[in-house]
C-alpha cells in the first residue's frame, strides 16, 4: 500500500496540480472569509452564522476534492489504459485501492489545513476552538465515507464519466436534506432522514455546536450516522477492491 500511496502522492502533489488547486482554494476562501467578516461587521449576519457558513464551505470543497480524486482512482487508470499493467503486478488489489484512497483522503486533509487560518480568524471573539474540533471530526468522518463511496464507484464503473456522475449524484442526494428549510424536515420522517443521512446529520451538528453554542455532548447521537456511514463505506470498498477487473461487468 505504501508504494502505491507514495507514488500517488508524488503524482498529485509534486508532479501534478495539487498545490495549485489548493492555492486557488486559499484565494477563494480569502474572498469568502473577508465577505463574511464584513457582512457580520455591519450586522447583516450573525458572526456565528458566518463561521458556520465558512466551515460548511471549507469542508464541502475538501470533501468534493477528495471524492472526485477517489472517483478517478481506478476508472481513471481504466480510461487511460494504464490499469492492465498495474493489475499484472503481484500487488494485491486491496493495497492498490487503499494506497489510492489514502491519497484521495489527503485532498480533504490538505484543504482543511488550508482553511484553518480562515476558520481561526473567524473564531476570534467567539471562543470557537470547539468549532474547529467539530469541523475536523465531522469532516474526517465524511471524507472517509465519501472517499470510500467514490472509490467503490470507481472500481465498478466502466469510465471516469460514470464514476464522476455517480459521485456527483450521491453527493447531491446526501446534501439535499440538510439544505432544505427546517420546516420541511419536521416530524418523525424528516427527523429520521436527517439522522440517517450522514451529511445532513453533520450539518445539524455544525449548526448546533457553532451557531447555537450547545456542547458537543448534546448532539453526540447525531454522530452515529457519520460514524456508521464511514464504517460501512470502508467495508464496502474493501469488498469491492477484491473484484477489480479490467472491464467491470455491465
Amino acid at each position: 500500500m505504501t508504494t502505491v500511496a507514495r507514488e500517488e502522492f508524488t503524482d498529485v502533489w509534486i508532479r501534478g496540480w495539487g498545490l495549485w488547486i489548493l492555492l486557488g482554494m486559499a484565494v477563494t476562501l480569502s474572498s469568502v472569509a473577508i465577505g463574511l467578516a464584513y457582512t457580520s461587521q455591519i450586522n447583516l449576519l450573525d458572526a456565528r452564522e458566518g463561521l458556520a457558513i465558512l466551515v460548511r464551505i471549507s469542508l464541502g470543497v475538501g470533501l468534493l476534492l477528495a471524492a472526485f480524486a477517489a472517483a478517478d482512482a481506478i476508472s481513471g487508470e481504466r480510461d487511460r489504459s494504464t490499469l492492465e499493467c498495474i493489475l499484472l503486478t503481484p500487488t494485491p488489489p486491496r493495497s492498490l485501492v487503499a494506497g489510492k484512497l489514502v491519497v484521495a483522503f489527503v485532498w480533504w486533509l490538505a484543504a482543511f489545513v488550508v482553511s484553518l487560518p480562515y476558520l481561526w480568524a473567524m473564531c476570534v471573539g467567539l471562543g470557537g476552538s470547539a468549532a474547529l474540533v467539530v469541523a475536523g471530526i465531522i469532516g474526517a468522518l465524511l471524507a472517509v465515507t465519501l472517499t470510500a463511496v467514490a472509490g467503490t464507484a470507481s472500481i465498478l464503473s466502466r469510465s471516469n464519466l460514470h464514476a464522476f456522475g455517480f459521485v456527483f449524484l450521491i453527493t447531491g442526494v446526501l446534501a439535499v436534506p440538510g439544505l432544505l428549510p427546517a420546516a420541511m424536515m419536521r416530524g418523525s420522517i424528516g427527523s429520521a432522514v436527517l439522522r440517517i443521512d450522514p451529511v445532513a446529520a453533520a450539518q445539524h451538528v455544525i449548526n448546533t455546536v457553532i451557531v447555537d453554542q450547545q456542547p458537543l455532548a448534546d448532539v453526540v447521537t447525531w454522530m452515529i450516522s457519520p460514524v456508521v456511514g464511514a464504517v460501512v463505506a470502508v467495508a464496502v470498498v474493501a469488498r469491492a477492491a477484491r473484484r477489480i477487473a479490467l472491464e467491470p461487468r455491465s
Binding site: R15, C85, I86
Partner: peptide, 23 residues
C-alpha cells in the same frame, strides 16, 4: 499488453521504478 497506456507526466525511469516497486 498491446493497448497499454502510459502516464504522460511521468518520467520513463520513474515509471519503470514504480513498476519494479510493485513487484
Amino acid at each position: 499488453p498491446e493497448s497499454a497506456g502510459y502516464p504522460k507526466r511521468k518520467r520513463g525511469v520513474d515509471y519503470l521504478t514504480y513498476h519494479g516497486r510493485l513487484f
